[in-house]
C-alpha cells in the first residue's frame, strides 16, 4: 500500500454544540492520526468556536447495528457505518452540468 493513493484514514466527527446537548454526528474528515483529526474537526466543523466538545473516531472502528439482523431492508454487511467502507468503482461519465 502506498500512503498517497489511499490518503489519510477516514474519521467520523461528533460535536457537542453547547453544554446540555449530546454529541451529534456532523460528518467525517481525513487525518493521519487522532490529534490531527481533532485539529481538523475543530477547524472544519466548529470553525474553532471555543467551548464546544469534539469526539473523533476512526470510521472503521465504529460498529453499526441493523434494527433486525433478519430484516432484508437493511444491508447484510452488518458491522460498518457505510455499506461500502472502501473503494467503490464509479463509472466515468459525462455530466449534465
Amino acid at each position: 500500500m502506498t500512503p498517497d493513493t489511499h490518503g489519510w484514514p477516514l474519521y467520523e466527527v461528533f460535536v457537542r454544540g453547547k453544554r446540555g446537548l449530546n454529541h451529534v454526528h456532523v460528518g467525517s474528515l481525513h487525518a493521519a492520526d487522532d490529534t490531527m483529526a481533532l485539529t481538523h474537526a475543530r477547524d472544519l466543523y466548529t470553525r474553532r468556536n471555543e467551548g464546544v466538545s469534539i469526539w473523533v473516531v476512526r470510521s472503521e472502528h465504529i460498529a453499526a447495528s441493523t434494527r433486525d439482523e433478519k430484516d432484508p431492508f437493511f444491508a447484510p454487511s452488518a458491522d460498518k457505518v457505510y455499506r461500502h467502507p472502501t473503494f467503490y468503482d464509479i463509472p466515468d461519465d459525462v455530466p449534465h452540468i
Binding site: V15, G17, V24, V26, T46, R47, R48, G51, V52
Partner: peptide, 10 residues
C-alpha cells in the same frame, strides 16, 4: 442552528 453544532460565540 443547534443541530448543526456550529460556533456562534464570536
Amino acid at each position: 442552528d443547534a443541530r448543526w453544532a456550529f460556533g456562534t460565540g464570536f
